[in-house]
Design a protein around this nucleic acid. Structure first.
Length: 432
DNA sequence: TCTGGGGTCCTAGGACCC
DNA sequence: TCTGGGGTCCTAGGACCC
């Protein structure tokens, strides 16, 4: 196999939520606009004009009340249905430029493309400009594009494209002359680099590493010793050695979280149960969409960490399920059986939620219950087999949820599939 | 008064086994 | 008095991402 230099692009929607809103309400153009989180608590998206006023990401609205009034900042509640719909179109347009295995939908507003195969065929800077124009023309969203020899470098290039007018929305570090690449890198603080957060950033500064260029010059092995393999990879990636590949098909989630802060404080256990019931339904729906089963779950509830009048209360309960499930009824029943353990009289609850964990893929899961189904053959009458299993295990144990057969040939040979069969919980594997 | 909601990966340390 | 060592699995906590 011959070694080939990789080339990646990162396409990112500018100020995504605000830009989506502007598509349908052009009056918002050229004004400072912010979009708020659930319950209108925090700022989750800002227009360029809002950023220029010094409004920070993630801070609560009440802290910038003065700026909002003084500059007539437009305030919007979030509309995730709209953003999700716009996101689908954004990714769909990009999918025309590459093969499916060369596209990674990284987030609602970011997409990686592996352009390695196109580097001799096209001028990639022009290719990217074409993408940018098309996205704006077709769906009205402004994007910036960074191109690099690794995903981290593409991210860095994207940051440069966003902040440097001279790039006209597309920055290609992959083909840039090294002296210019070094120069532009030396202007960027390490905290802007993908994978470097607050803690690492402070530690690196103490070590005398301040800019993206400094980190590029660092020794990956030395960094690995002081930090971890993760940061060592970041250094290698900045040096143009690709360590992180495109993930074109999203792998099943390892945990599913559903939680919310309450608009108003909750003190009654019934209200807590009701909220938990909502969140759990959303979590189980996502579990099923993923075709997965969970083995355990964590439920939690807490008061407001910002309340200085009362002590902070938080309770977390881990629950192991007796067998893997995606059954709404089973999960609901289990949660409701434990909710009184979360509750405490006199506590003003501000948040609760559920985490489904111990997740496994449904099609690879073979419950103990059915291990001796191995003796079934494709010629055996299914009804007889069902009776045999029922005799052995009793009705109630197999009367939950849904069921799947892993052997297609067998399904087509059977004329005896019944409704009964599909009401089972778990998976039936047949070996011929 | 008012403070988001999802996720991932890595590491260290303890329990346990032979 | 001297008190193994290697391997695996699990969990909590920390750091990061959008």
């Amino acid at each position: 196999m011959t070694y080939q230099n990789k080339i990646y692009a990162l396409i990112d929607v500018n100020n995504c939520y605000v830009s989506c809103e502007r598509v349908f309400n052009p009056k918002l153009n050229h004004k400072p606009v912010i979009v708020l989180s659930n319950n209108d608590g925090c700022i989750v998206s800002r227009s360029q004009e809002a950023k220029a006023l010094g409004i920070q990401m993630g801070i609560p609205l009440f802290q910038i009340k003065d700026i909002v009034e003084q500059h007539a900042v437009e305030i919007l509640s979030s509309n995730y249905k709209l953003y999700t719909e716009m996101s689908k179109r954004f990714h769909a347009i990009l999918s025309d430029y590459v093969s499916p295995h060369e596209q990674e939908i990284y987030s609602i507003d970011e997409c990686f493309l592996d352009l390695t195969a196109y580097q001799y065929q096209f001028d990639l800077t022009l290719y990217a400009q074409n993408m940018r124009d098309k996205i704006f023309k077709w769906i009205g969203l402004p994007v910036c594009i960074g191109i690099g020899r690794s995903k981290t470098e593409a991210k860095l290039a994207n940051h440069m494209a966003k902040n440097g007018k001279r790039f006209n929305g597309v920055c290609n570090l992959a083909t840039m002359e090294p002296k210019y690449r070094d120069y532009f890198s030396s202007l960027i603080d390490i905290k802007e680099i993908w994978g470097i957060g607050k803690q690492h950033s402070q530690k690196l500064h103490r070590m005398g590493i301040h800019t993206a260029f400094d980190l590029t010059q660092a020794n990956a092995q030395a960094i690995k010793k002081v930090f971890s393999i993760v940061l060592a990879k970041t250094v290698a990636e900045l040096q143009g050695i690709s360590c992180i590949e495109i993930e074109h098909s999203p792998s099943a989630k390892k945990q599913i979280i559903s939680s919310r802060s309450f608009g108003q404080r909750v003190t009654h256990i019934d209200a807590l149960s009701e909220a938990m019931s909502d969140y759990l339904q959303s979590a189980v729906k996502r579990l099923r969409d993923d075709q997965s089963l969970c083995n355990c779950m964590i439920i939690f509830a807490s008061s407001s960490p910002f309340d200085t009048q009362r002590p902070f209360y938080q309770k977390v309960i881990h629950i192991d399920l007796s067998e893997p499930t995606d059954s709404m009824a089973v999960i609901n029943k289990t949660v409701m059986a434990h909710i009184h353990q979360l509750y405490q009289e006199g506590v003003a609850f501000k948040k609760c939620g559920i985490i489904l964990t111990g997740i496994e893929n449904k099609v690879s899961y073979i419950p103990d219950l059915f291990t001796d189904v191995d003796v079934m053959t494709k010629n055996e009458n299914l009804q007889i087999a069902i009776e045999r299993i029922k005799d052995k295990f009793g009705d109630q144990k197999i009367a939950l949820g849904s069921c799947k057969i892993s052997h297609e040939a067998w399904i087509t040979n059977s004329t005896h599939l019944s409704q009964d069969y599909f009401s089972w919980d778990g998976l039936l594997t047949i070996h011929q």
